[in-house]
Design a protein around this nucleic acid. Structure first.
Lengths: 222, 222, 222, 222
DNA sequence: GATGAATGAGGTTTCATTCAT
DNA sequence: TATGAATGAAACCTCATTCAT
């Protein structure tokens, strides 16, 4: 069995990977149970290691959570870096940003659980990380520049706050997934099916693009 | 003296209100700490009662949480009932719905904490409540009818799914607040200031209305 | 429903019976759960009365248990009084005593539970009752006299201690029932079926009578 | 100092014995207080260990009780194994079985307390143990074979059910001790004195042997 | 580096009992 | 007589963490 193999005869190379494995286990535990619901020994069990190893590598529960959050934000950064949007025209760039944001969350549900828990704790863990603090600056710059390019070429409405737009884009994808259980119950619909997700993604793109392009034609509204 | 009055000889009126007081304390505790982070004795202390009274009235932690959720959803229903939107024209009705949804969350931040925690637990508590299950049916009907009216009079685009729209409307208000701590940190902006909230509300209305009215004029987009 | 009828519009005659009803409920609870496993509020619920009434009538858990034990020993006395054995010849009298002892326990399983619990507490409750202390004196006298009659007429062996014989008679019936659950499990046999009980009763009579009559014929044994 | 040695720096040999020590303490607590009356912290105190160690080794109260019961039944098996009765002639074998059963209980009063409590709980704990389920099979076989040998050589009566006989033998020893407190009170006799125990043992052997040999001479009785 | 032993603090819950009416 | 409110004590159990090897 896996567990047996793990407990005995670990090679030196395995040892080097243990930290990664613990981090993965902690991510799974924290994201599904929340910080308070997560158990250190459950994390150790998930990772197939002795609980003391967890303390050896990460110090304590809070520090472990910080490490998990930093890794999660690295994933986010990766998703943003993977797309080279600046080469695209403003409309294509923006719709691709919306789509990649949707994929970011739907491919990494654990990020939603982690962010949800971290907000319950008033972001006390990530506040300790300078690395995270400035993670979004490039993205906000990109949004601002793309908006400007769109306005310049007459495609986008003017006067849109990049921060507000970023929140709107994230909100559309995040909320659908973060609240999938309560929404599924009161709306009598499974929000996690492949069709539901595809429809949501299409809808989100439509909403954002409609908004951006709307004002460009009729500036008397709103 | 206060303490003496509390311990002995509480008047009947006091007694009748104790349940309400406990419920309020539990709401505060659960919404700020989450289900797992909440402490029963902290709830009792907040309510100024002996912890056993909490058990006397509500049985156990889970049942108390269910009671809190039911009260929270009643608040939600109240917010929806307070506005008589059916008398308004479609555009006014919809923009008022967006605004009231925003107020619902910004006036009742505790609801966000409760929903967040409940989703971490896969909605296991509210699933026990038939009352909650069908709470949103009338609202969805209203959205569907209003959309139809807007389409009929040529104001709104056609083909919008009421459920999808409802999620979009909620998402815009909810996410801004549910993730205010992490967003505040990475965006370097206080999302809870009066100006920030007012700006967000305006933005949200604009986004939704742009979307609804966009397709009515140009159906080749998106 | 019963309970409803009980709670409302109780007649004065009903009130007089409440003590009896509580006692019956307490007997059921104590005998099936033991003193420590019994719950005062479960007793009140079983009786369909408010728990404070239990305290009103009986003071506390220990006193209630004493009352239950006294009632139980009254049942025992009744079973002994019901049979007028002194008119019978020694052998018939003795075999009838064995049978009535068996019936005493098989008809009143609760007595077994109560005695078992009371012995776990080193008889601390019944020690408070003078009434119980001397309850068995007449029975022991009867056994002694019957033994003497049997010896005199040549039916019974001599030298039998009445107390020892009483224990033997009780043991045979009691143990089969008191340990029916563990015995049933390790012996792979249901000891509570009608056939099993009938067979046991026959067996017990046979054992006792064999013993009493044996020595009368062969005094070299043992 | 004793306490210091206990708290820190326990030698490995000590550690290995802790489980046994806890089990002994648990046996004492459970057998004298019953399952419901027993307290986990009292067990820890009796064993001189931290209460959490008890949970570390045994999981919970029920599992600890199961462990205690299994150890108790092992003691029972030991008592039965220690005597090599098959080599003896039927009468000697049977009288030795009766005596060893008596010793089993009088040497191990805790077994009586444990069995009494377990029966109050309808054997719910030992039912989980396959080991216990078949513990008595060899003993029942032995009784059946010995009876047959006795019948074949004309010493014992025929038609005796081995299970019934086993219950009778156990009952005689068990009841005297299990109910020693209530019996002592109502019979005005100390049943635990050395003389009383010796007399009981003699009496029990006599009763069983009389029964077994009786029918062999006079089959018209009973 | 890695592990089993050990612990303190505290969490939820139960329960006998009393108070006030 | 009868009852809902209220409480203190303690029970079982969990969990993050540290110690000793």
């Amino acid at each position: 069995m896996e567990a047996g193999r793990r407990r005995r005869g670990r090679s030196t190379k395995d040892s080097a990977d243990l930290k990664v494995e613990i981090l993965r286990a902690a991510t799974a535990e924290f994201s599904t149970k929340g910080f308070d619901g997560a158990r250190m020994d459950a994390i150790a069990r998930r990772a197939g290691v002795n609980i003391n190893l967890v303390y050896h590598y990460f110090g304590n529960k809070d520090a472990l959570f910080v490490a998990v959050m930093e890794a999660a934000y690295l994933t986010i950064r990766t998703y943003h870096n993977d797309i080279n949007l600046r080469a695209l025209d403003p409309e294509a760039a923006m719709s691709e940003l919306v789509r990649s944001t949707f994929r970011l969350f739907s491919d990494n549900l654990h990020i939603i659980g982690l962010l949800s828990s971290e907000n319950m704790h008033e972001a006390c863990h990530i506040r300790q990380s300078e690395q995270i603090r400035n993670l979004y600056n490039p993205l906000l710059d990109f949004i601002g520049e793309t908006l400007a390019r769109g306005v310049a070429e007459g495609t986008f409405r003017s006067g849109v706050d990049p921060v507000e737009l970023f929140i709107t884009i994230s909100a559309q994808s995040y909320f659908h997934l973060s609240n999938r259980h309560t929404l599924g119950f009161i709306l009598h619909r499974d929000l996690t099916s492949a069709e539901s997700l595809a429809a949501r993604q299409r809808h989100v793109v439509e909403v954002i693009l409609s908004f951006l392009k709307h004002q460009a034609r009729n500036s008397s509204d709103a």
